[in-house]
């Protein structure tokens, strides 16, 4: 097998240029028109961003609905949307709009946020670079992952799902080059329910399941 080239990445967040939303209707309007990078940031890049990592919900829309609109029903419905389960960001956008529209139709009043609690639309650039590490043996993958940065875990296990082959992490794509021999590792990686984990937690879990798979071989 060719060695696995470990990459790393750093996230640089910026304002998107969209006006902040002060109520649910404005959120809907801006969300419907925002760029894919804004959508991707608020759904997927939250794990890598500088913020506390263990909130109730993984996406910013659900967090805002709960904390600043005070709408727990909406927060729960938005919070369960797993962006990695959608084939495309277009589908994710449609599903999100459906949830918001349903809530708007149920509500007698449009929920508002206080001044200062607006939803700020952001986007980010992911700067990717070679970490200078090569993994030559699948049996060593768990040990290497244990020592990886959050950036590497994010890039190879989460961000990878938006690259070809769509929906697959880089580790699995590498292991599939010798699918028969690497089945225990491939199954181990597939067993991880990753979306609700913080990156340090995900790193530990990936290392754990791979180490167990290695021990069971």
């Amino acid at each position: 097998m060719t060695p696995f080239e470990v990459k790393d990445c750093a996230l640089l967040v910026r304002m998107s240029g969209l006006s902040p939303a002060t109520n649910l209707r404005e959120l809907r309007e801006r969300f419907a028109a925002c760029s894919w990078s804004v959508l991707f940031h608020h759904y997927c890049e939250t794990t890598l961003r500088t913020t506390y990592d263990n909130l109730d919900y993984r996406n910013d829309f659900a967090v805002w609905a709960k904390l600043y609109l005070g709408d727990r029903v909406l927060a729960e419905r938005l919070g369960i949307l797993d962006p990695y389960s959608f084939q495309s960001l277009k589908e994710l956008r449609a599903a999100t709009l459906e949830v918001i529209d349903q809530r708007l139709s149920e509500s007698a009043m449009v929920p508002w946020a206080r001044h200062g609690d607006e939803f700020f639309f952001m986007e980010a650039t992911t700067v990717v670079f070679d970490a200078g590490i090569r993994i030559t043996q699948p049996s060593l993958l768990g040990a290497f992952i244990r020592e990886m940065t959050n950036g590497s875990v994010y890039y190879h296990f989460l961000e990878a799902r938006r690259r070809l082959p769509i929906g697959m992490d880089d580790f699995t794509a590498w292991l599939l080059k010798d699918e028969e021999a690497n089945q225990p590792y491939i199954r181990a990686l597939a067993s991880v329910d990753f979306y609700f984990r913080s990156l340090p937690d995900l790193r530990r879990e990936l290392a754990r399941v791979l180490t167990e798979a290695e021990a069971a071989k």
Partner: peptide
């Protein structure tokens, strides 16, 4: 990261350096 983005990438979503 910011200096790399400013120098090479502008406002792209993904920048490989």
């Amino acid at each position: 990261a910011l200096m790399l983005v400013i120098a090479r990438g502008g406002q792209v979503r993904f920048l490989e350096v």
